[in-house]
Structures are given as C-alpha cells and as structure tokens.
C-alpha cells in the first residue's frame, strides 16, 4: 500500500529524517567514545600504569 503524506510531505519526512540522523549521531558518539576510552586504558596499562587494586581498568567483573 502506497502511503500518501499530502501537501506537507517534505515537513513530515524531514522531521523523521532529522530524528534518525540525530539519534544515529548519539549512538555513534557513545560507541566511539567507549572504544576510545578502552583503547586509552589499554595503552596506559601496557606502559605499566595500573590501578591501586592491581585490577585491569577495563575489567567489568
């Protein structure tokens, strides 16, 4: 079934496209930030800089 959006289709499509874009940017930012922080932690640990507890800074359990 073909959907008809009427004379204001561009406003509707732009709204949904903008929401999709901003949410995609948010998700991308969160994922890239996670990768960047774990990478920096690994580099520091490889240089022998470890936490006081001796546990890995990227350890989750």
């Amino acid at each position: 079934m073909m959907m008809s959006l009427g004379p204001y289709a561009s406003f509707i499509v732009t709204s949904y496209a903008a929401a999709a874009l901003v949410i995609a940017i948010l998700i991308g930012w969160v994922m890239l930030d996670y990768r960047s922080q774990t990478q920096r932690l690994r580099e520091l640990e490889e240089r022998g800089i470890t936490r006081g507890s001796g546990r890995s800074a990227t350890e989750l359990r």
């Binding site: 969160v30 994922m31 930030d33 922080q37 774990t38 932690l41 470890t50 936490r51 990227t58």
Partner: peptide, 16 residues
Amino acid sequence: AAMRNEILRRRVRSLQ
C-alpha cells in the same frame, strides 16, 4: 552506556 564511558574516562584521567 554514556555513564559507563564516563567511568572509564575518569579511570583514564586517574591513571594519567
């Protein structure tokens, strides 16, 4: 997810 990143960022800062 962003809170997890922030905790890791603070760990980076303290190790630096």
